[in-house]
Simulated assay, not measured.
Amino acid sequence: MSVVETLRNSIRTGEIVTIIYHGGSNPGASREIFPVGILSGDEKLRARCIVDGATKVFKIDKISIVDADGVIDMARDISQSKLYTSLKELYLDAVPLFDAEKFHIELGDNELSVHKKWKNGKHQKGVVINIYYQEAYTNLVFNYETSQFDEVTKKPQRPWCIFGKNVTPNSYKDFNKAAYYFIEQIDKAVTEKNIHGEVKK
């Protein structure tokens, strides 16, 4: 279901929708809205913001819809006609989005990471943006019988994780959703302020 279809559906049913809005005074922030109407040939949405109660106009191409598993419909002209099933597919689509002289993209078995390059061509250790699969994690759980902490290994429900500079960290159960979120966050990761003062061209 597209962003517009989801919004139309919520107008009919009267449901509150959680969105990420890539505009306004706080771009990238999650917010809850009550959609009222779609304007200007599907270009704008009139909705009431649940937090402050004000009715506002949002540009639809800057809206991403969120559900319990994360972002389900991406805005900003990102087509979801392709179904991503592997990191290699994402890698092949991501490479053309970066300047090869400034960035190094590394593909591993469970990880895809983007690194800034030094002037000598070698890549920096720090990550610009990264997507990886977390197989398991360890928690310390207090054992009342022994009065000690035991290490307990758990499998995450949302093992696909994305993080980076100026990127809102997120995790997903579904790789395809994670892949689209990764692509969507590239413009936020490659900005004037967070990549050593250089502007993405």
Results as ranks from 00 to 15, higher is better:
112 L>Y: 03
87 L>F: 10
115 H>A: 07
131 I>H: 01
129 I>G: 02
133 Y>N: 00
132 Y>E: 00
153 T>C: 11
163 F>E: 05
137 Y>I: 00
110 N>F: 10
111 E>W: 12
115 H>M: 02
135 E>W: 04
135 E>L: 05
90 L>W: 06
144 Y>M: 07
160 W>V: 01
81 S>Y: 14
98 F>W: 12
131 I>W: 00
108 G>S: 13
121 G>W: 08
146 T>W: 03
153 T>R: 09
125 K>P: 07
159 P>L: 02
143 N>R: 03
143 N>P: 06
92 L>W: 08
89 E>K: 11
108 G>P: 13
152 V>G: 01
101 E>K: 14
113 S>R: 06
120 N>A: 10
87 L>Y: 08
107 L>P: 11
93 D>P: 05
92 L>P: 08
140 L>Y: 09
109 D>A: 13
109 D>M: 13
101 E>L: 14
110 N>S: 11
130 N>H: 07
106 E>F: 15
107 L>Y: 06
105 I>M: 10
88 K>P: 11
95 V>S: 14
85 T>M: 05
103 F>H: 15
120 N>L: 10
140 L>S: 12
112 L>G: 01
155 K>H: 03
155 K>F: 02
134 Q>N: 00
129 I>L: 08
109 D>Y: 13
135 E>M: 05
121 G>F: 13
107 L>M: 11
121 G>A: 13
105 I>N: 12
86 S>H: 06
125 K>M: 12
144 Y>E: 04
88 K>G: 12
160 W>F: 04
149 F>P: 10
146 T>R: 06
138 T>K: 00
91 Y>W: 13
147 S>E: 10
143 N>V: 03
105 I>C: 11
146 T>F: 05
113 S>I: 02
85 T>G: 09
151 E>V: 03
120 N>K: 14
129 I>Q: 07
149 F>N: 09
127 V>G: 04
148 Q>T: 08
103 F>K: 15
117 K>M: 12
125 K>R: 13
130 N>M: 07
87 L>C: 04
80 Q>R: 11
105 I>P: 13
150 D>E: 11
77 D>N: 14
110 N>M: 12
139 N>R: 07
152 V>Q: 01
114 V>Y: 09
136 A>N: 08
131 I>T: 01
123 H>T: 06
146 T>Y: 03
120 N>P: 13
134 Q>L: 00
148 Q>L: 07
122 K>T: 09
100 A>I: 15
126 G>R: 09
152 V>P: 02
121 G>L: 14
146 T>C: 04
163 F>C: 05
141 V>R: 03
124 Q>V: 06
145 E>Y: 06
108 G>F: 12
122 K>N: 10
120 N>C: 09
157 Q>K: 06
145 E>T: 05
132 Y>L: 01
113 S>M: 02
105 I>K: 12
118 W>E: 13
135 E>V: 03
138 T>N: 00
122 K>M: 13
147 S>W: 11
162 I>Y: 00
85 T>Y: 02
100 A>E: 15
80 Q>V: 15
160 W>N: 01
96 P>E: 07
161 C>W: 01
106 E>Q: 15
96 P>Y: 06
146 T>V: 05
149 F>Q: 08
137 Y>M: 02
99 D>E: 12
133 Y>M: 00
